[in-house]
Structure formats: C-alpha cells, structure tokens
Simulated assay, not measured.
Amino acid sequence: MKTIQLRRYTLVDGEYDAFVDWWKGSMPRVRPAAGFTIEFAYGIPETNEFVWAVSAEGDEEAFVALEQEYLASDARAEVFAGVPQRVAEYNIRFVSEFATTA
C-alpha cells in the first residue's frame, strides 16, 4: 500500500523559471532520500502553476509521520536555505488512486 499526496502550487508572478530550476535541482535529490517517491511533476507556465505528486509506502498516518521527519531534517533545511518564497498558494491533498483499463 502506498499513499499519494497531490501538491498544486500557484507560483509568485515572475518566479516560475526560478522555482522550476530550484525544484529540479532539489526535490529529486531530497525527497527520495527521505523515503518518498516523486510520481510526476508538471508545470503550466502560462498560469504560474506547478503540480506534482509524491508518495510513500503505508497509509496516511505513516505518510504524515515520514513527512514530519522530512520537514525537520537537515537535508530539507539545506535546500530551502536562502530560497525566497516563490509559492503564492498551496493546495496539498491526499488522493485516491484508481485502476485504469486500456
């Protein structure tokens, strides 16, 4: 069993490229090292939106516990050190995965 969290951001005007560059250089390194899997990441430059999903093994309670460890980690603090606030709005929710058929 895995739990998936969908993370939808509206970025600060003018910060899209800087955010994407920072994200690509940071998240694929620190999130997996903390026990997460990045399921996907997509950006919509025209609307300053960035959407990605991260998962972890276990239920929501296990995900939350793992995320608390990650949020308190030195590795996370390092990648956020000196980074200006580039996200104007966060929409973060757990989602259900449905089987698809071809």
Rank of each mutant, 00 (worst) to 15 (best):
K2F: 06
R7V: 15
R7S: 09
T10Q: 11
L11G: 07
L11V: 06
L11R: 04
V12N: 04
V12M: 11
V12L: 06
D13L: 00
D13S: 12
G14V: 10
E15A: 14
D17L: 11
D21M: 00
D21K: 14
W22V: 02
W22R: 07
W23Q: 05
W23R: 04
W23M: 08
K24C: 09
K24D: 12
M27N: 04
P28V: 04
R29N: 02
V30P: 07
P32R: 03
A33Q: 05
A34D: 03
T37I: 11
T37S: 13
I38W: 01
E39N: 11
E39D: 15
E39G: 10
E39C: 08
F40D: 13
A41I: 10
Y42N: 12
Y42C: 14
Y42V: 14
Y42S: 05
I44C: 12
P45S: 08
P45N: 10
E46T: 09
E46Q: 14
E49C: 07
F50Q: 09
V51H: 13
V51K: 01
V51Y: 09
V51R: 01
W52I: 09
S55R: 08
S55P: 10
E57H: 10
E57P: 02
E57L: 11
G58S: 09
D59P: 08
E60L: 05
E61R: 07
F63W: 10
F63G: 08
F63E: 03
F63M: 10
V64M: 06
A65G: 03
A65K: 13
L66A: 15
L66V: 03
E67R: 09
E67S: 11
E67H: 12
Q68A: 15
Q68P: 03
E69S: 11
Y70Q: 06
L71A: 11
L71G: 00
L71V: 01
A72S: 12
A72G: 02
S73A: 07
D74K: 14
D74R: 09
A75I: 04
R76M: 12
A77H: 13
E78V: 04
E78H: 03
E78L: 00
E78G: 00
V79P: 00
V79A: 03
V79N: 07
F80V: 11
A81T: 09
A81L: 03
G82W: 07
V83F: 04
V83E: 07
Q85A: 14
R86K: 15
V87T: 11
A88R: 14
A88P: 05
A88Y: 06
E89A: 13
E89D: 10
Y90T: 04
Y90Q: 12
Y90A: 08
Y90G: 06
N91V: 08
I92P: 07
I92A: 01
R93A: 12
R93F: 04
F94V: 02
S96M: 05
S96R: 15
A99G: 10
A102T: 09
A102V: 12
